[in-house]
Amino acid sequence: MTIRVVVADDQELVRAGFALILGAQADIEVVAEAADGVEAVDAVRQHAPDVVLLDIRMPRMDGIEAARVVCAESDTRAIMLTTFDQDDYVYEALHAGASGFLLKDVRRDDLVHAVRVVVAGDSLLAPSVARRLVADFTSRKPAPEPEAAARLRVLTPRERQTLVLMGRGLSNPEIAAEMFVSEHTVKTHVSNVLAKLGLRDRIQAVVCAYETGLIAPGAATV
């Protein structure tokens, strides 16, 4: 299967560089490039890609709003491009439906891996930067409201435990080892958690774990 990608960044050299790297892969095709959020949304509507890379800061429509539109209208996965020390809107990007984040100075292999991981239905939680981002931005939110915690009542005790471990950034094999169950069982628990809570992917599950008070800010491991 060929993975179809749209690359959106207002910096032409960055955009062209990412497109060149991804286009060189046998299983990836860059179907369009975009210089701002409006062009990115139009490109997604036209080409229906599997993944769109979105710079957070773009003219006309920023990457967060573009991600919100794309994720609401399609099954395209959004990966945000960010400069970790400067961007203050990562939390909003999570709520917009983003499946992960990449630093603009990402290594070639990590860029390719990220696209493949997201298409496989996972999210970019493994790199330490993603865990730090989630912990940092969720810690800025107010204490959870009672109705937020009430969302978790639909989960079984094992599913709740799975959500806790997901919130800490553990992979499926790590969760299996922690819970003394098979990876297949973990996959079932993860699927149930996402379905019952109406979550798009694992990274939204992490946000949910923080928002509902299931995990305290700073609990994510590096």
Score class of each variant (00 low, 15 high):
Thr188His: 09
Gly167Ala: 11
Leu124Lys: 10
Ile21Arg: 10
Thr221Glu: 15
Asp50Leu: 02
Glu145Thr: 07
Tyr89Asp: 13
Leu197Asn: 09
Val207Cys: 03
Val52Tyr: 02
Glu147Gln: 05
Val5Asn: 09
Gln25Pro: 01
Pro157Lys: 04
Cys208Thr: 14
Leu111Asp: 12
Ala66Phe: 06
Glu145Trp: 00
Ala67Val: 07
Thr138Met: 14
Val90Asp: 02
Gly169Asn: 11
Arg151Gly: 01
Arg4Glu: 12
Ser139Cys: 06
Leu20Tyr: 03
Ala150Gly: 01
Leu165Gly: 04
Val115Phe: 04
Leu54Asn: 09
Thr83Ala: 15
Asp9Phe: 11
Met166Ser: 02
Ser139Asp: 12
Arg202His: 11
His47Asn: 14
Asp55Glu: 11
Val193Asp: 06
Val6Arg: 07
His113Leu: 09
Leu103Pro: 01
Val181Glu: 03
Gly17Tyr: 13
Ile175Ser: 11
Val70Ser: 03
Asn192Cys: 05
Leu54Phe: 07
Thr212Ala: 06
Tyr210His: 15
Val69Ala: 09
Ala216Phe: 00
Asp55Ser: 12
Thr162Lys: 04
Val117Leu: 14
Val52Pro: 06
Val51Ile: 13
Ala98Cys: 12
Arg202Leu: 15
Arg160Asn: 10
Arg131Pro: 05
Ala120Val: 04
Lys141Val: 02
Leu163Ala: 12
Ile215Gly: 01
Gln204Asn: 06
Pro49Phe: 03
Asp9Glu: 11
Asp50His: 15
Met166Ile: 15
Val154Trp: 02
Met1Glu: 10
Thr162His: 12
Ala40Glu: 06
Asp9Ile: 11
Val90Thr: 11
Glu73Ser: 09
Glu211Leu: 08
Ser182Ile: 08
Ala78Asn: 02
Val41Asn: 03
